[in-house]
Design a protein around this nucleic acid. Structure first.
Lengths: 330, 330
DNA sequence: TTGTACGCGTTATCAA
DNA sequence: TTGATAACGCGTACAA
């Protein structure tokens, strides 16, 4: 390249990066050569020399889940807007796969990572952070790791709203299908649910809180157990996006009519939730905002020389009332 | 690293890559240092030296679309299985964004790319291929680019089956919402539809074929036009996954009852298609197979020294009959 | 079996 | 304003 333009490599570098001074005449000669040769700076060489990357990692459980896929879409877009490439990795909620993801991103020397972490690899995440990789947890997070930003939903409040909406419609036996209480989202949603019950003096029935792994499993057995109770619930909140389609499928095939037999609220407003009969009441998240904050937080960290302290951002969600919930007894 | 183990860099390399001979004693000493220091080979340095990457690019329109998101999930998984990282890029069907994606991947010197290309950047794709980047088109493809593998669905046959199923139920006026005929999928699906009509001696009404961009737009105006026809169709095939949810939404709000007023078939068996009322007849694709073939094709190319000739793989799809289609007049 | 020396394509420094 | 030179971390001949 440099020889084709008849200059030294240093000059080419200054032209490409608009950095340092170069006479207009040679600048044009270099530009001409660049166009002619279809020259593109070699990313790896640049990374090696500057010790920086414009690539970030994105570690999610499962991009087939509409919640994560929409999130990923927004993250990839926002990242591209600020000139960052995204190395996508999925874990299928498997700690071993998550570890492999971390390993890969470590080798690639990505500047930062956006992740919805599982519960098992706290040490690995901490180590990654200590290696100097900037980290932003999105949606879920692990406690007690310093220097890692967190951006998530107001799960506690959202669950509280959902449960309250049902209580106000006369429901007393409200089931909750949530994620594992080992996860931050699971914990927070269960907590919000409980608080709403307590505020209305309703005794909690532990049998009505079902923790399912965040995997697209068959929800049949779990639901069958609930429905077969001597006093079955009159309402159901699904706070686990990975199983919500499966839950709705089962309600159908089990002949449970919504909302007559069971009022239903689902977390995450996937594109189909208004298409069922009846349309589903949902907790709607602003995934675009979630993604924007995650990318921005990481981006500022990447460009800030000093170590920032941990930041946490909570985004509000909205309860969208649709006909899947009704006054009890109606 | 080398100094910590008290050996030369060359030895470390041979240990790490299990390449070349090294005495058991020093091997262990090196391994110990590796563990102690948490040493990981620097990806960029290795790439620079060996002129190879274990990263591939994935260029899709829009990961929020369930079709692409499921595809992406499988691709990321299969790629990880063979030790490949995936740099994900989205175009939103915008040629300019697609070009930026190509540019990014070119700079990153990825070894190969899996893409569902748009129609506008044929020259850029060709150039990428000529640069030595292995290319596999998935789902869609651009003609006349040599040395690029293609793996896709049997769109012509699938559309033919769908239309035939409707004809067999007495339908004569069958509308088709497809992608642009500039795209391979659009063309093929329209062709299959036409062939079925011709085989049954049905005159084609050009007004019943609606080409919509592959974007999650409001399908309202397009559908309103069809329904307002003097002789509205009795059946509708949606061969454009980006708009199918929007189409179904509109049918609902317009008070069109399925299948009494309109029989409906949709391409791609998203997780919600069985949850609508009535459940939707769908063309089901094997996205896992699609992904597997795409990754395998690219992977073999990456590891094969000689230039292979173009390969094309078509995967069968399945028509899953559900209550959304009925005998005409029923 | 091990070490030395060079090169991969950049950028940064310094001298010209 | 420009060029020469070193260095980034690794792999690979080749010499020891």
């Amino acid at each position: 390249m440099a020889e084709h333009a008849g200059v030294s490599p240093g000059v080419v570098s200054r032209v490409v990066n608009a950095n340092g001074s170069v006479s207009e005449r040679t600048r044009e000669r270099v530009l001409a050569s660049i166009a002619e040769l279809g020259y593109r700076p070699h990313s790896a060489a640049r990374e090696l020399r500057t010790r920086t990357t414009n690539t970030i990692g994105l570690v999610l459980a499962d991009v087939a889940n509409p919640f994560f896929s929409q999130l990923a879409d927004h993250i990839v877009r926002h990242a591209a807007d600020v000139g960052l490439g995204v190395l996508l990795t999925t874990t299928q909620e498997d700690p071993a796969m998550e570890l492999k993801s971390i390993e890969l991103l470590l080798q690639k020397r990505v500047g930062g990572v956006i992740a919805a972490p599982g519960t098992e690899n706290a040490a690995a995440w901490r180590h990654m952070r200590e290696t100097g990789v900037e980290l932003t947890f999105v949606d879920r997070f692990i406690d007690r790791i310093p220097g890692i930003d967190v951006v998530g939903m107001d799960n506690e409040h959202a669950a509280h709203s959902a449960t309250t909406a049902l209580i106000e419609r006369g429901h007393r036996r409200i089931a909750l299908v949530s994620g594992p209480s080992e996860t931050s989202t699971g914990r927070e949603r269960i907590a919000g649910h409980r608080r709403a019950l307590q505020e209305h003096g309703i005794d909690e029935d532990p049998g009505l809180v079902i923790e399912l792994a965040f995997r697209p499993v068959e929800a049949e057995t779990a639901l069958a157990g609930i429905v077969a109770l001597p006093q079955p619930p009159t309402a159901l909140i699904v706070g686990n996006t990975a199983v919500s389609a499966s839950v709705v499928t089962h309600l159908r095939s089990a002949g449970i009519s919504v909302p007559q037999d069971l009022s239903v609220i689902v977390f995450h407003d996937a594109e189909w939730t208004a298409l069922t009969s009846p349309p589903l009441t949902v907790v709607r998240h602003r995934l675009d905002e979630l993604a924007r904050h995650a990318v921005d937080m990481l981006h500022t960290r990447l460009n800030s020389p000093e170590r920032l302290r941990r930041r946490e951002k909570r985004l509000p969600s909205e309860l969208v009332i649709r006909p899947s919930i009704a006054q009890v007894g109606d």
